[in-house]
């Protein structure tokens, strides 16, 4: 798609899969995925905070990769598999979510969906990450409440849990 088309306000039908469900969304090519997810699909687990790709509150998975939905435009999602926090708990909670609960990896919870999405992308790709790898994978997710102590504990526990079950 050309630059002009992206910028244009021309109507656009986005076809993609959100949490496994096929969707056709009437929007514009440059509409932000964050707005689509929150306002069109009412999936408000994905949060908005900085809108410039710096905080990670808006993270979703696109084909398994963690991306900032505030920086992603509708046309970039065409035919993609999008997973939001709501799509993570398929049969009961994901072990990552369980680990956050048990270790106290959150307080206000506003960063938590984005944080968990980033952890999910990390552990799916690298089940046994080093501290450096954890730090790098999560350095785009700001948490103002916890000081990251509980997040470190939760990520390590989640990784451990996965290794034991596989």
């Amino acid at each position: 798609m050309s630059e002009e088309a992206v910028k244009s306000e021309t109507p656009y039908v986005l076809r993609c899969f959100v949490n496994g469900k096929e969707e056709s969304i009437h929007t514009t090519p440059a509409a932000r995925l964050l707005t689509i997810v929150r306002d069109e699909l009412s999936l408000t687990g994905t949060k908005r905070s900085c809108e410039i790709g710096r905080c990670g509150a808006c993270m979703v998975l696109i084909d398994g990769n963690a991306v900032n939905s505030c920086l992603t435009m509708a046309y970039q999602c065409s035919e993609k598999q999008i997973t939001t926090i709501e799509g993570l708990a398929v049969q009961g909670m994901d072990p990552i979510q369980q680990a956050f609960l048990e270790e106290g990896g959150f307080q206000c919870g506003y960063c938590t969906p984005g944080m968990i999405i980033s952890v999910k992308a990390l552990l799916d790709e690298n089940p046994d990450p080093t501290d450096d790898e954890i730090s790098e994978a999560l350095s785009g997710n700001i948490c103002r409440c916890t000081g990251y102590g509980g997040i470190w504990r939760a990520v390590k526990r989640a990784a451990e849990g996965r290794r034991q079950t596989t």
Partner: peptide, 9 residues
């Protein structure tokens, strides 16, 4: 309030 926070619910 944890479950609602980790699931986005």
């Amino acid at each position: 309030d944890g479950p609602g926070k980790v699931t986005g619910g």
